[in-house]
Amino acid sequence: MSEKLLEIVDERLSFFTPAGEVKALNGVSFSMEEGEVLGIVGESGSGKSVTAYSIMGLTAYPGRLIGGTIRFNGHQVDQMSEKEFRKMRGNEVSIIFQDPMTSLNPVYTIGNQIEEVIRLHTDKSKTEARARAKELLELVGINEPEKRLRQYPHELSGGMRQRVMIAIALACEPKLLIADEPTTALDVTIQAQILELMQELRQKMGMSIIMITHDLGVVASMCERIAVMYAGHIVEYGTTDEIFYHPSHEYTKGLIGSIPKLTTEESERLVPIEGQPVDLLNPPAGCPFAPRCRSCMKICLKKMPPKTRLSDTHYSYCWLRQKEAAEGGHEA
């Protein structure tokens, strides 16, 4: 169990666009153990999807890894060739995309698309692959699998298509499943069904999951660890309880404060994070959150804060915490 499944150290990734270099990731480091469920939260453009895609070698042109190391399941991912990636994808790591409407091919049947994955990665015969596809559809809770295998994506509802996506991702029992906003395009009741299914499958198959989402509600129920991203940095990392009950980065606090509470009788005024998201073409010199931060100090604008350890599992990058730690002990 203690063997690290995934270890990313100081990953830097930029998109070289005509307008200039967009620094999507600026030194991202984290690691995951086998069987763990990690949530990556952050707003659009914070780099959460880019981080996950780079594990699979799916960085899109004009993006390029410009520094850092990624180790996954014994592979040195940052030095792998496309050929090696092809062997790894689907077998050891697979992905569920956000939009089930556009990520299935409309001109092939569901059966075709599931069998394709199985036959690419194993030496099963056509009939064996068919049987396995049927088994997979049953696993993800689709009724009448025989009939569904012969249908095309447009004949299925959004929730069903997402189940098919999950079936495809699980076809070769990967060690790591990356779920990129798997329920954002779905209605709440369908979202609840899909999240429940993912939890069930995780218990059955023992895989690790990286859950990328902007919805703090989804991570609260699904994840054990959470990484909060802002402007290409992980600004805080900790267990779910630490992040929700003892947030230490001002951005995390802001995020939690801006969610309306469902459970109180009186509606308190929301506390939004003022200002606009960072422009990654010209990121600020110091802490990326400084221009929007309520407690911004002089040093925040000049230098990126170092890591402050708050517990064995909890750390954040904020000058305030650094200051508290230097003054001897921090508030838990």
Partner: peptide, 14 residues
Amino acid sequence: SLISAIPVADPQVA
């Protein structure tokens, strides 16, 4: 069921 399906952003409640 609609209310019960809302993901609550509070791990203990969730």
